[in-house]
Structure formats: C-alpha cells, structure tokens
C-alpha cells in the first residue's frame, strides 16, 4: 500500500514537472529575436479568420501587425483555439495573445491583460427613423431577437410589458425581420450590426447598449515591461487613428467609447 502511495505521488510529481512553467517573455527577448509571436483565433470572424489564401486575418491580425510594427519587430501569427489559447501563452509558444480574449476575473488570475483594444457589445439596433434611447421607449414597439440569445435575455429583463419581443431561431431570420421591416428594432451584437450596415448602409443605427465585453491583449503574468510597451502601443494607436481604421475595416464603426475609455480594472469590476 505504501509503495502504491509512493508511486502515485511520484507519478503526480512527474506530471507536475512536465507541465510547462509560465515563462515570462521579456521585452528584451522579443527584441533580440526580432519576431513577436502572436497567438490569435482563426475561427472567430471578423476578429480572427483565415483568408481565402489560407493566411490569418481580421481585427486581431491587423492589431497584432500594428503592434509588431510599433515595437519594430516582425510578426508571426500563430493560430490558436479558444480552449488552448491560454496554455499556448503560458507554455511560452507565443509571446502575446491578441485572441479576442475577454477580460474576466477568472482569466485575470492566469494572465495579465493590457487595456482594452477591442470590444463586443450587444445593443438595441434599428431603423434610423425610430426614436428609442432607453428601455422605456421600447413600450409598444416590436423587436426581433434570436431565441435564448444573450440579447433575448437582456431585452426580456429590461423591456416594458407592452414590448412585442419576436423570437426567431437564428441570426439570419432575425436580421431578415429587421431588414424586411417586419420589426423596426432588433437586439443584436456589434459584429452582426456591422454586417447589416454593410448590406444596407445608413439605414439603421444603434439605439442603446444592453451589455459590453472588452477584450485585452494578454501576456504571461510578470512581463511588466512587455505589458507596458503594449499599453503604450494601444494608447498611441487609439490616438493616431490606427485602431479606428482597423475597427472600421472589420466592424464598420470607429472604436466605441466603451473600448476607448475602458480599463482592465473597470472590466473586472463590472464582472464581479
């Protein structure tokens, strides 16, 4: 029995050793290599996707390229997936993550976040001519949502009783209801709103936000100098219009105030 225990303990110890320890990528190392290895998603359009030529592109890719340019190094984009992106970073296979990583308290325990560089917002969106500025104005109006989506839950919670919430099975049908004029309003994310705006420019606009989630660039905890450099980059890119250009290209709008004025602290406080 004792032998067994020892064996198990030994096995566990070995396993623990085998797990790669978090290695802080220092700014110096990156600069010495001349390459910034960036982990990004390629299955999360329009933030990260594969181009028809098989290269990663999107909001995250453009941000990563601008970051590397600012640091004066080359960029290497490494495709990661949702579940393995943090292990990729912590095991040192990438220097930073520009992987649409939402700033949440759980993740903040494992990685250090930069200030927000992007954000996902769900909102009430609709025809320009419809006057709606807050939940009260929804009274008596009809609004399309995808059944059981976060928008559905948010709208159901705040809308007055007389609001007619029309629930559809998917984005396509709900968007169709808005575009065909069956409902003047819709609960939607900024990503889908950008697609609607592309299809029918200038016909619809945002009425008010339901909820927001900001995304940060992540580094291994303790990479203080690297993080400071990234924060400098974001501040700079916000000011000189680089981020606006990226945002307009992929989301159809300039950087929203909740991203521009957001901070890690505020994002974490909002999730508590």
């Amino acid at each position: 029995m004792n032998i067994l225990k020892t064996l198990v303990a030994a096995a566990l110890a070995t396993a623990a050793l085998a797990v790669p320890q978090a290695q802080a990528s220092t700014l110096k190392q990156v600069e010495a290599h001349g390459v910034l290895k960036v982990g990004m998603l390629v299955d999360f359009p329009p933030f990260g996707l594969m181009s028809t030529a098989g290269k990663p592109e999107g909001y995250d890719a453009d941000t990563a390229k601008a970051l590397a340019k600012y640091m004066g190094v080359k960029v290497q984009l490494v495709p990661v997936t949702g579940p393995n992106r943090i292990p990729y970073l912590l095991s040192g296979q990438v220097d930073v993550l520009v992987a649409s990583l939402g700033i949440t308290p759980d993740r903040a325990k494992r990685v250090d976040f930069s200030r927000p560089y992007a954000g996902i917002e769900i909102m009430v969106y609709g025809k320009k001519s419809v006057k709606v500025t807050d939940a009260k104005d929804l009274a008596g109006k009809s609004l399309a949502v995808v059944r059981a989506s976060t928008q559905d839950q948010a709208v159901t919670k705040i809308a007055p009783k007389s609001t007619i919430i029309r629930r559809f099975d998917d984005d396509a049908a709900a968007v169709q209801a808005l575009m065909s004029g069956q409902t003047p309003l819709m609960g939607v994310s900024n990503v889908v709103a950008a697609q609607i705006n592309k299809a029918k420019p200038g016909e619809f606009n945002e009425k008010f936000a339901l909820a927001t989630q900001v995304q940060g660039i992540a580094v291994v905890p303790g990479s203080t100098k690297l993080l400071a450099k990234i924060n400098d980059f974001i501040a700079h890119a916000m000011k000189d219009g680089t981020m606006d250009k990226i945002s307009e290209k992929w989301l159809g709008t300039k950087i929203q105030p909740f991203v521009r004025n957001g901070s890690v602290k505020a994002a974490l406080a909002a999730k508590k």
């Binding site: 399309a144 059944r147 059981a148 559905d152 029309r166 629930r167 559809f168 099975d169 049908a173 209801a177």
Partner: peptide, 17 residues
C-alpha cells in the same frame, strides 16, 4: 419560425429558458 406564438414556439421559448 416567423415568430408566431403558437404551441411549438411556446415550447421552444420554455426550452430556451
């Protein structure tokens, strides 16, 4: 599917909840 509030849609709403 066009958001009429019939029995099937009531079931789907309840299921989502």
């Amino acid at each position: 599917t066009i958001s009429a509030n019939d029995l099937a849609s009531a079931g789907a709403d309840l299921n989502a909840k």
